[in-house]
């Protein structure tokens, strides 16, 4: 029984390692700050989540498990907020997009059937 638990924990750990390394590779390879945050914001959420799940299987004691569950929940809640804040700061400071990006500054409103001027560049 213990060996199955440990095998599962190792699988989860390596899954988390995989996604965290994908995040770092994305940070190096992708062209501008917005695309880099795509890689970091998403892969870190699941990577950290998987590592914490593996730790939930391995640690003894109910109190530690509850604290780890709390950390899991907080990670999933905080990560998108931080990603959004960094992106917004970059946008407000006028960081330019990479070459070949498109900008759609209107949205289509179905009720009135016309293009409205939206917020964009």
């Amino acid at each position: 029984m213990v060996i199955f638990k440990e095998i599962l924990a190792v699988i989860l750990l390596f899954g988390g390692l995989f996604f965290l390394s994908v995040g770092v590779i994305g940070l190096i390879r992708l062209p501008d700050i917005y695309n880099r945050l795509h890689a970091l914001g998403k892969c870190d959420t699941l990577g950290t989540g998987l590592v914490i799940s593996a730790m939930i299987l391995l640690v003894p004691g109910m109190t530690n498990v509850i604290k780890l569950f709390l950390m899991l929940f907080l990670t999933f809640a905080i990560n998108p907020v931080m990603t959004h804040l960094i992106t917004k700061t970059a946008y407000v400071r006028g960081t330019s997009l990479t070459e070949g990006s498109f900008v759609v500054s209107t949205y289509y409103e179905e009720e009135e059937g016309e293009f409205l001027k939206g917020e964009g560049e």
């Binding site: 390879r29 997009l97 990479t98 070949g100 990006s101 498109f102 759609v104 949205y107 917020e119 964009g120």
Partner: peptide, 12 residues
């Protein structure tokens, strides 16, 4: 190849 075509979009 990294098939990206990034951009900004406004939605309601």
């Amino acid at each position: 190849k990294m098939p990206i075509s990034p951009g900004l979009i406004v939605l309601k």
